[in-house]
Amino acid sequence: MGIRTLIVMLVASILLIAFLALKPAYSLFLPGLLEGALLTAKITVLGCLLAVAMGVLAALGKLYGPAPIRWLANLYIEIFRGTSALVQLFWLFFVLPQFGISLEPFTVAVLGLGLNVGAYGAECVRGAVTSVARGQWEAATALNMTRAQMLRRIILPQAFIAMIPPWGNLFIELLKSTALVSLITLSDLAFKAQQMNQTTMKTIPIFTLVLLIYLAMSLVITIGMRYLEGRMSKGLARGRTV
């Protein structure tokens, strides 16, 4: 989809929310839902930061680490990609306390989702790093750079551009997964919706608003990542033509 269509969809969904807010049947629920959306946004942002950090660390560990670190990275990636996100959240929430580690639900949410998406991210970082042309490594070796210098100055900046679209998809996955944290007692958007639904039984307005709010949030991520990709690859094209 073109970026213009996405922006039109975003504006349309925000206008629709605003229009619905004029009706008393809908405006009743909006403040509570927006409060939940704020928590959803907080978890998404922190989770994304953790996911990026874990993704880069695990990918570099898997690619260039000594054997034990490589195994550890592989173990992390396979376990978190192989099991369900909800199972991971429940494990952190219900099972860890029995080993004497009690975490706040908010910490569990950020940790669980960040680690889960980070494992997927590791594979996309690895793909992007290995897609950088061999000649770049050879040229950096010829310039007598250390491996850390090569990675920092030559490889990662180029791999970064290839990483943006898959990370954009993962950030949206993370945003959508935040709906799971409602099941570990956090009052995010999905939780608020369920709570209001149980007390008022006004299902249509509540869930319509919730869908629109989630849609608007993921469109913001998609548009932001497209913009970032456009800006970053502009620099790359200039560098190549020189």
Binding site: K176, A179, L180, N197
Partner: peptide, 21 residues
């Protein structure tokens, strides 16, 4: 795009709670 940008959990709730209305 609509289906892919909204959480599955909400879609499940939607089918389960909204369709009866």
């Amino acid at each position: 795009e609509l289906i892919r940008s909204t959480p599955l959990l909400i879609q499940i709730f939607f089918l389960y709670f909204v369709f009866p209305s």
